[in-house]
């Protein structure tokens, strides 16, 4: 069982709620995924649609609500958004995102660490989105992050786990849960992260923009489950040389002597 911030999760698939075609599809996909943690963003109210409210489509009894600080370009902006998120959600869960460059949306490590330190002091349960940097993961963990969220590849790219080598080190070293976030574009990517020993994955775009988001949510749930089961079962080690699967001893007849 996965525990983050004192909360226990049965599902190791976390879902982003962006880019769904409708609230109804989002709701159904959340249910099909079995997720118990969904992320949301904060934006200015669209005064043309004053009643448009995502909260009405989400069941907070079933899911932990994880507001993000997307749009923040530095620690100061992220901290301001964090306090707004806490006021809006009534809870201290926070996915910390500090992305100064809109082209890459890569996280700023210095500002992320600075904001993590301050938000932990202010009582937030901080899950920082970070580049797959093992040293930074340790620094964030020491600063009090409840989990670390290294990226597989940049947000929304569907490129999969391009940072496998670093993520393996992060998983090996971490004392807090490791949630692989961003870039997971296919169930196989999610399964790979879980086989590597990640504690959970966060998926958004790959599900929300799929031809059938509800079916895709189900596919991701199965992949995460399969990957986790494989990790727990213990994966065989890799070798550069062939290792026969069938016994090389015990021939049946002399005619089959070449089998010896």
């Amino acid at each position: 069982m996965l525990t983050i911030g004192g909360h226990t999760f049965n599902s190791r698939l976390f879902l982003g709620t962006g880019k769904f075609s409708s609230s109804a599809v989002m709701k159904e996909a959340i249910e099909a995924s079995g997720t118990e943690m969904v992320t949301v963003a904060l934006r200015r109210v669209d005064l043309e649609n004053p009643e448009d409210d995502i909260m009405s489509a989400l069941d907070r009894d079933k899911c932990v609500f994880l507001p993000n600080t997307s749009g923040a370009r530095n620690a100061e902006e992220a901290i301001r958004l964090a306090h707004l998120a806490r006021a809006a959600s009534g809870s201290s869960w926070l996915k910390l995102e500090v992305t100064p460059d809109p082209r890459t949306l890569l996280p700023d490590p210095v500002e992320t660490l600075k904001a993590t330190e301050e938000l932990v002091r202010a009582g937030f349960i901080v899950l920082p989105y970070m580049n797959a940097d093992p040293i930074l993961a340790l620094r964030l963990q020491d600063a009090g992050a409840a989990a670390v969220m290294p990226l597989g590849s940049p947000i929304g790219t569907n490129q999969g786990i391009l940072t496998a080598f670093q993520i393996e080190i992060i998983i090996d070293q971490a004392r807090v849960p490791v949630v692989v976030d961003a870039g997971i574009g296919a169930p196989s990517h999610a399964a790979l992260a879980m086989e590597m020993g990640a504690d959970a994955v966060l998926v958004n775009t790959a599900i929300s923009v799929a031809g059938d988001p509800v079916a895709m949510a189900r596919a991701f749930a199965q992949a995460v489950e399969a990957g986790r089961t494989a990790f727990v079962a213990g994966m065989g080690s890799r070798s550069k040389q062939a290792q026969a699967s069938s016994p090389l001893t015990g021939t049946l007849t002399t005619d089959l002597g070449f089998l010896a």
Binding site: G16, A41, L42, M55, A88
Partner: peptide, 30 residues
Amino acid sequence: NKTIIQPDSYATTSLQDNDQMELIRFVGGG
């Protein structure tokens, strides 16, 4: 003006000329 107003103060907080007010809510996001 960069200070969060608690809901129980909405009825007693008067707006002043040149105030900077932000109305924020949750939207879908990853």
